[in-house]
Simulated scan of single mutants.
Amino acid sequence: MLSLLLVFGAGLLAGAMNAAAGGGSFVTIPALVFAGMPSVAANASSTVALLPGTLASAWAWRQEFRSFEGIPLPWLIGISFAGGLAGAVLLLATPQRAFDDLLPWLLLTGTLAFAFGRQLGEALRRHVRIGRGTVLAAQIVLAIYAGYFGGGVGIMMMAVWSLLGHADIRAMSAARTLLVSAANAVAVLCFALWGPVRWPETLVMLVAAVIGGYGGAVLARRLPAPVLRAFVIVFGLAMTAVFFLRR
């Protein structure tokens, strides 16, 4: 009973974070691990539980979907489907002990990407101009990462796209929600069919994340964006430290 309460609370917080600033997986995966779930199952279950929220975000942004300079949006969607599937298969093939060792580093990578991804993209754009081939290659890697773990992947995508010279923040935000949703949807299908999803905890977290997502949207209108981002970063760093200490 206590573990389900922990999972429900984590789902509420993660849904609110994703709606307001992102970074919900920094809450859900640790909570499922602390509730007694193996890390691979926690990762897969977290992806399933948070998918409805990402799909809802993509639907909300649907009027802003458009192709980037020289890169048709259908290409990026196809890459995201393929990369999400590859990442999910890679996760299922990863031994449990190896993923336990890798998880703190994934949390750290996701947190740093969330904290500094945009600044890095802006700084590099002042000195580097890359072509669409490089962006497509980077998108393949990011889609695989999204299916495998996904923490901070949306910020990574926007940082890469900014290197192409694309500066329309609304278009990038819309594309981010669509492509992350595409990668996660394929991963969820893979996890649901063959993965170690723990359905009781997952369904509790899914319902909580939907409720939290609505509350997070309301909260996002009242709190300054820097405050929300700072909370996600501090929480991500704290969870990273905890998992490094556990190892």
Rank of each mutant, 00 (worst) to 15 (best):
L124R: 11
Y148M: 04
I79G: 00
L107W: 05
T111G: 10
A86C: 14
A146K: 02
A115H: 05
F65M: 10
R132F: 03
E64K: 07
G117F: 10
G152M: 10
L112W: 08
T109K: 02
H127E: 11
A86R: 04
Y145L: 07
R66A: 15
A88F: 01
G83K: 02
E122M: 08
R62F: 07
V135E: 03
F114D: 05
G78M: 03
R132V: 13
Q119P: 01
L90P: 02
W59S: 05
L76H: 00
V89C: 09
A60M: 12
V141A: 14
R62N: 08
F68V: 03
I79C: 00
E122Y: 05
T134M: 15
L142W: 05
P74M: 09
G110T: 10
Q139Y: 05
F68T: 04
A143D: 06
R132H: 09
L142D: 02
V135G: 00
A137G: 13
L108A: 15
A82P: 00
W59Y: 15
V89I: 14
D100Q: 14
L106Y: 05
Y145R: 04
A113Q: 08
I79K: 00
A88Q: 02
G150R: 06
E69I: 04
V89K: 08
V135D: 00
V135T: 09
E69N: 11
I79F: 00
D101E: 10
A123H: 13
A88P: 01
W105A: 10
H127N: 08
R126H: 11
F65K: 02
R132K: 14
W105K: 01
L92M: 15
S67E: 03
G151D: 07
A98V: 12
